[in-house]
Nucleic acid binder design. Structure first.
Length: 105
DNA sequence: CACTTGACGTCGT
DNA sequence: GACGACGCCAAGT
């Protein structure tokens, strides 16, 4: 498991997230073996804008379903738009059907 | 080289 | 049940 970097694991996990489904930073961190690395997951996804292939970072939210990193998408409304585009209901910076659309490996 | 910040989470009050 | 403080790990300044 040490072959892949922490960031690489995050990218791979995010790519496994099905369409119209979302997850949390803590869940990802825990899934890749770093239960306390939730913050690092966010850091990795921030950098994801500079890597290929593009990672569906908009499907990763915090534990309460809030679009914590919407500002990192270039346009603050982009993340909410993408989620709405997938059929989600977004209220301001919060996903209403978050628990309903929650996905876990 | 040391301090601060950051896409979070959990415990305590 | 809501608000605040602490803890984690890494990068930037």
């Amino acid at each position: 498991m040490s072959d892949l970097d922490f960031f690489q694991k995050v990218y791979e996990y995010c790519r496994h997230i099905p369409y119209g489904r979302v997850t949390t930073y803590g869940a990802v961190a825990r899934a890749i073996g770093s239960p306390s690395g939730a913050r690092m997951v966010g850091w990795a996804l921030n950098k994801s804008s500079s890597i290929e292939p593009s990672v569906p970072a908009h499907r990763v939210l915090n534990r309460i379903g809030m679009l914590s990193g919407k500002k990192a998408f270039g346009d603050p409304n982009l993340m909410a738009e993408l989620l709405r585009q997938e059929g989600h209901r977004v209220e301001g910076d919060r996903l209403l059907d978050f628990e309903e659309s929650f996905w876990s490996a």
